[in-house]
């Protein structure tokens, strides 16, 4: 199948062991886009990201990157193909320093690691100057916001073409969230393709080109971010504009 999409999912089923979470999920992300994936807690958003990077295996369906199948590709191979995930809960190497976390982020560069680390550090320190001040601190001693910045920065160290983010705003103060999203805007202007999973639907849609809405493992709605922001059902369920309406 030839197409111009950078990432494409066809009828993907996935889950944990015998527990199926995703049902028949199809979506695509084009080069240069910022696509938001919204939905309430437990809708399967994180499962979808884990399936894309290969931490979970799709039980059926197809995943393509740049027209090539990545359906059963492992995460360690996929990062070499330019896909990086900022995982849920950050998963930093806590007892290691900020610098060591970042160096490990460039692990996939292999023989070119020296240059990759140097270039990568310059780039992420520019994006998040606070990390350069904290470079020799252990990751676990950072504040929540700094840890999230480090998680994003670590993913960027592999010079991805497609960046996947899982709930980067979770548990953070509004000022920190603004800082992280302005960094995402910078990346976007540089041409990075981003697939963003967020529970904060308004925040995600405000920054996105397009959006998908997930409910109980299925994509139930898709469209331009601006349309989704004004869509009646999205407003009711995910933006909480009407009182007394719970999420499904």
């Amino acid at each position: 199948m030839t197409n111009s999409h950078l990432l494409e999912l066809h009828n993907v089923d996935s889950g944990y062991g015998r527990t199926q979470v995703l049902r028949d999920v199809s979506l695509h992300v084009d080069a240069g886009e910022l696509v938001a994936l919204i939905g309430s807690n437990g809708a399967g958003k994180s499962t979808l990201l884990k399936t894309i990077v290969g931490l979970l295996r799709a039980s059926s369906g197809e995943l393509n990157l740049d027209g090539n199948s990545i359906t059963h590709m492992t995460p360690e191979k996929l990062v070499r193909r330019g896909v990086a995930l900022v995982p849920e809960g950050r998963l930093l190497f806590g007892p290691m320093t900020v610098r060591e976390n970042l160096e490990l982020g460039a692990y996939s560069a292999g023989a070119r690691r020296g240059t990759a680390v140097k270039d990568g550090l310059r780039r992420v320190f520019e994006l998040f100057p606070v990390l350069s001040e904290r470079a020799s601190q252990h990751a676990e001693t950072l504040s929540g916001g700094e840890q999230q910045m480090l998680a994003v920065a670590r993913a960027l160290m592999s010079s991805p073409t497609l960046l996947l983010l899982d709930e980067p705003s979770l548990g953070l103060a509004p000022r920190v969230i603004a800082e992280i999203f302005s960094a995402l805007e910078v990346l976007r202007r540089e041409g990075m393709t981003i697939l963003l999973v967020e529970q904060d639907a308004r925040l995600a849609l405000k920054h996105a080109d397009r959006g998908y809405v997930m409910r109980t493992g299925e994509i139930v709605l898709e469209g331009a971010a601006s349309d989704l922001l004004t869509d009646e059902s999205v407003r009711t369920i995910y933006l909480g504009l009407l009182k007394g309406e719970g999420s499904a």
Binding site: F93, M96, E100, G105, Y107
Partner: peptide, 24 residues
């Protein structure tokens, strides 16, 4: 060494290690 740090990283956070390209 990068190799030793990759061993430590894998023991600390297996999934995160795989995500940065370490063959756990």
């Amino acid at each position: 060494t990068a190799f030793g740090k990759a061993m430590r990283a894998t023991s600390l956070r297996r999934d995160a290690a795989r995500l940065v390209g370490i063959d756990a």
